[in-house]
């Protein structure tokens, strides 16, 4: 299968290793990865902060770049949620019938990374091995918009050597929320503290998720506290093939 990668703006800039991991997993499974170089951002930050007018051209841009893709892989559930939940509204309120029509045919070909593996490629074992204690944080958009359910968990359960520890209250928001983390920094931090208590309580070495945005927020606080738990995108775990080569976290 030819899979087009939408890396997302912040992964491209801040988490290139997540992108490399996605490429590594998909190629290992025998697929061809394509990266349209003119891609930028899905418009989520602008849309969610109230800059709806700025989000519209970005939505158009995304759809025109990926319109003909066989499948689009996005390693960020909140960006997938933006596209699935709100692009149609943007087309509608801008009376853009072309965008609406292109979107309708494109949407069924858009997959969050773990969705792509489980729903499109029908896989649970991607041949990974990773000998660490891991806990999984269910990010809100993955949980409530994409309804990922136990898909990421099923993938993690098939990773050789991985010891998966359930995170208490895993359905509770970590407090990131995009610009919420800055506009309401006090409440965001209070929410994060509760999440950290839960993560540290598991004794896991790694906290993983399908969204680097939540993980950046969690990792930032873990580092501030001097905790040696590491936040790591699920793609990086699924890309690991043996513990010798991947080293220690």
């Amino acid at each position: 299968m030819r899979i087009s990668l939408f890396i997302t703006c912040y992964n491209d800039t801040l988490f290139p290793h997540t992108g490399k991991a996605v490429v590594s997993v998909l190629e290992r499974l025998g697929h061809t990865v394509d990266f349209p170089i003119d891609q930028t951002c899905c418009g989520q930050m602008h849309f969610n902060t109230g800059y709806r007018r700025a989000a519209y051209p970005l939505a158009k841009r995304f759809v025109s770049i990926f319109r003909d893709a066989e499948a689009v892989c996005i390693p960020s559930s909140s960006c997938v949620a933006m596209i699935r939940d709100y692009y149609a509204d943007l087309a509608d309120e801008n009376h853009d019938q072309e965008l609406a029509a292109d979107l309708r045919t494109l949407l069924p070909r858009i997959f969050e990374f773990t969705e792509l593996l489980t729903d499109c490629l029908h896989l649970e074992d991607v041949g990974a091995s990773f000998s660490h204690r891991v806990t999984y944080h269910a990010s809100c958009h993955g949980l409530r918009s994409l309804h990922l359910g136990d898909k990421p968990i099923r993938l993690l359960r098939h990773v050789r050597g991985l010891d998966l520890i359930e995170l208490p209250n895993s359905d509770r928001c970590c407090g990131f929320g995009g610009t919420f983390a800055v506009k309401n920094a006090g409440v965001s931090t209070a929410m994060l503290e509760e999440k950290l208590d839960a993560i540290l309580g598991t004794g896991a070495e790694i906290c993983t998720a399908c969204d680097n945005s939540c993980l950046m927020h969690i990792q930032g606080r873990l580092h501030r506290h001097g905790a040696d738990v590491r936040a790591m995108h699920i793609a990086e775990i699924l890309a690991s093939e043996n513990r010798e080569r991947e080293g220690t976290p």
Partner: peptide, 16 residues
């Protein structure tokens, strides 16, 4: 409240 890791020297698109 949170530390920030610096931006990696190479972006994904540069690597690609």
């Amino acid at each position: 409240a949170r530390d920030l890791a610096p931006i990696p020297a190479q972006s994904f698109r540069e690597w690609w």
